[in-house]
Design a protein around this nucleic acid. Structure first.
Length: 736
DNA sequence: GTAGGGTTAG
């Protein structure tokens, strides 16, 4: 290995002291071709030393050339380049620009600004047309609207606002900051738009979600005879992908072929993604097999496509077959599992990725796995992930904060959720909304409303989701007046047109409070077509208030919209059961049997020491089955002593014999889970259970009694909300 | 000798 004492290169030695005057020979000095051949930092440092020794470094041009190579070589650190820069006696404007440029695409774009102001104060130079694209790029990287505007102002001051390069970077900058109007204004101002101007605006529209505007602009570009290039087509394809418009996507592909647009890797990847997301696996696979060059994006696009379509095995095969799966590849699989309602598989894949040791989980991984924990109510795992995030030194961004709040809320630990919320550095609309949702599901309606007002004070604009959560809070806490008020303010005060979800919430609020007639009138006056969820809310209220006539009406409307809706039939049969109309119950049951409709089986799960135990009704598959059942019998016996009488109206089936009816009730999945919790969870810890359906009345009153008799805290999350049982009471005040 | 726009995972 060469060292400084055995020079890798030999430079002509100056026999005289180095001359500082510019010598034209320097520009063709052989050292420059050597710099380009360097393959390590060590070699660069050797050249550096030689240049210092020979005096060549003190020639501004040569120093500048050397510094540029340092700043952009793949093996040199920017820190080293910076040291080189600081050695240059009087860097010229080109050199300053180079340093600003290097920082703008580094992990620390903020250094661009620092260098920029250093240049203003310490050098005799003013920024020129080359300087601005770099600092504007840094502002885009940091999404710093304020700084970008300052640069825009300077551009005008320096009379550079006719430079298309600078204006194009401003389009990009404003689009990144989400201000498409300003971006478009800059776009319109450009006298001689080039293809990059169009591309910047098109991709700005795509990234801002205005797909049709993007496509419109593409047509206009064509009409003005500007020839689109490969980057244009990436933007246009991306719009097709997001719109899921396979037909147009196909047209774009043939357009690319017809117009002989250069197909580079990025464009091929965009095409792959379009085919996959628009649902044409065949086209994607054909293209993928045909591609000569593939990178990690190509492979990940395939993994993601397969996984999203539920082809998990194929996705995993592709992942296993690819050269070096990255964290994004794993994330594609984990998130597909989580989003398709397979949280256990998501966590298993997460475990596998950790065992593979080649990649480290990142923010994306944690967001998906936390969501999986939230679905399962797996708080031990969730806490472990939270600890991991801290251990890896990952800063909580808004996505992570939102996921943590959601996980803790859905796992029943509202205190921890609030802790995360209060310690968050930044809170966007999703962070606030998730906290409102957390308070809502735990029945703290008033606190949720308070938080909404604090959100307003913090000047964070609520969105449609915020209002869904807020109305949910009103519904769970029986806050009818507040619910009405917020609903009525949505459009006029907040500029959010109520969607069908908001209407459903409102029907729920009115219905639960017993205002069934008002709810019906409300539905009749809806400006949009009532969806199944709206009728479902009314039906649920009818069940609660035992209004058979309206229930029949609601369920028939619901079944018109969704003839296959099991929920409607089940709820209707529950109503009949509750009112003792057993004949109607059996008729409905027959109808369900004939059409192959079955009630979604109830299922409860409980996490003990990080392991999820799942129970179905009358389940006997658990290893501790015997112990669980003997505990259950003990509970039943003790409850009888306390005068508990089973509430048989909850029975869906028509069971003839009294004993059998009681038996069926006692074997509900949540009761099994509670029995298991009593024998396996430390008495100091609450028993946390997640149920997939709404908890039945009998189980609800049993849980209340158990919390008193056994002096245990029970947290039960059902499909709609949380129930905190303690000392014989439930946090829902029996209103759910 | 310097510049601007693009694809994958929430």
């Amino acid at each position: 290995m060469e060292t400084l004492s055995t020079p890798l290169i030999s430079l002509p030695r100056h026999t005289n002291p180095p001359s500082l005057t510019v010598n034209n020979d320097h520009q063709h000095h052989p050292v420059f071709s050597l710099i380009n051949q360097c393959t390590s930092l060590k070699q660069l440092k050797q050249i550096h030393a030689q240049m210092l020794r020979s005096g060549l470094f003190f020639d501004p041009y040569s120093a500048s050339r050397f510094f540029t190579s340092c700043a952009f070589s793949s093996f040199s650190s920017l820190d080293y380049a910076r040291k080189v820069f600081d050695q240059i006696p009087q860097p010229n404007l080109f050199t300053w620009n180079t340093l600003i440029r290097a920082y703008s695409s580094s992990p620390e774009p903020i250094q661009s600004f620092k260098t920029f102001s250093k240049m203003l104060y310490e050098s005799p130079y003013f920024p020129n047309k080359f300087t601005f694209p770099f600092v504007i790029k840094a502002a885009s990287e940091l999404v710093s609207f304020r700084l970008g505007q300052v640069f825009h102002g300077m551009v005008i001051k320096f009379s550079l606002d006719d430079n298309v390069f600078i204006l194009n970077s401003l389009i990009h900058f404003y689009a990144i900051c989400g201000d498409l109007e300003l971006a478009y204004r800059v776009f319109l101002m450009i006298g001689e738009k080039d293809v990059v101007s169009w591309n910047s605006m098109i991709s700005g529209f795509v990234q801002g979600g205005h797909f049709d505007k993007a496509l419109e602009l593409f047509r206009e570009m064509e009409a003005q005879n500007v020839k689109p290039d490969d980057v244009t087509m990436v933007g246009v394809l991306s719009a097709c992908t997001k719109k899921k418009d396979l037909e147009f996507g196909r047209w774009v592909c043939s357009y690319i072929e017809k117009n002989e647009i250069k197909m580079d890797l990025t464009l091929s990847n965009a095409m792959l993604d379009m085919y996959m997301k628009c649902g044409s696996i065949e086209d994607a696979k054909r293209l993928f097999d045909k591609m000569e060059e593939k990178d990690i994006v190509s492979w990940t696009t395939m993994v993601d496509g397969y996984a999203k379509l539920g082809e998990y095995d194929v996705a995993k095969c592709v992942l296993d077959a690819m050269p070096r799966p990255g964290i994004a590849t794993w994330n594609a699989l984990v998130s597909a599992y989580e989003q398709n309602g397979l949280p256990k598989e998501a966590l298993a894949t997460f475990q596998e990725l950790q065992l593979s040791k080649n990649v480290n989980p990142d923010e994306f991984t944690f967001v998906s796995t936390l969501a999986a924990c939230a679905q399962l109510g797996a708080m031990d795992v969730g806490e472990w992930i939270h600890a991991n995030i801290k251990k890896q030194g990952i800063k909580l961004n808004c996505y992570l904060t939102t996921s943590l709040i959601d996980m803790y809320s859905k796992c029943g630990n509202l205190e921890k959720a609030l802790e995360v919320f209060h310690s968050a550095e930044r809170r966007d609309v999703f962070v606030w909304s998730s906290m409102i949702a957390g308070l809502a599901m735990h029945g703290h309606g008033k606190a949720a409303i308070d938080l909404f007002f604090r959100m307003k004070e913090a000047k964070v604009k609520p969105n449609a989701i915020t209002f869904t959560n807020l109305l949910c809070a009103c519904s769970h806490s029986g806050l009818v007046e507040e619910g009405r008020m917020f609903f009525n303010q949505m459009g006029p005060v907040y500029g959010i047109i109520p969607g069908v979800k908001h209407y459903a919430c409102m029907v729920d609020i009115l219905g639960r409070a017993g205002l069934l007639k008002e709810a019906m009138v409300f539905i009749e006056n809806m400006p949009i077509i009532p969806s199944a969820s709206v009728w479902g809310a009314l039906l649920g209220a009818c069940k609660l208030h035992e209004n058979v006539e309206l229930a029949e009406q609601a369920s028939s409307r619901l079944l018109e919209l969704e003839p296959e809706n099991r929920g409607a039939l089940v709820l209707l049969s529950n109503i009949y059961a509750k009112t003792g109309k057993w004949n109607n119950v059996s008729e409905l049951r027959k109808r369900m049997r004939v059409s192959g409709l079955k009630k979604e089986p109830g299922c409860s799960s409980i996490e003990v020491n990080g392991i999820i135990h799942k129970f179905h009704a009358a389940d006997n598959s658990h290893p501790l089955c015997m112990d669980i059942y003997s505990k259950l019998y003990e509970i039943v016996a003790r409850l009888k002593l306390f005068g508990h009488v089973s509430n048989k109206s909850q029975l869906l089936q028509l069971v003839e014999e009294e004993d059998m009816q009681e038996q069926a009730l006692n074997l509900h999945s949540e009761k099994l889970a509670i029995a298991f919790g009593l024998i396996s969870v430390e008495p100091s810890q609450p028993i946390r259970i997640v149920k997939n359906l709404r908890v039945c009345e009998d189980c609800h009153s049993v849980a209340k009694l158990i919390s008193k008799i056994y002096d245990r805290e029970i947290l039960l999350r059902d499909r709609y909300r949380f129930h905190h049982f303690s000392g014989g009471h439930c946090s829902c005040m029996d209103y759910w």
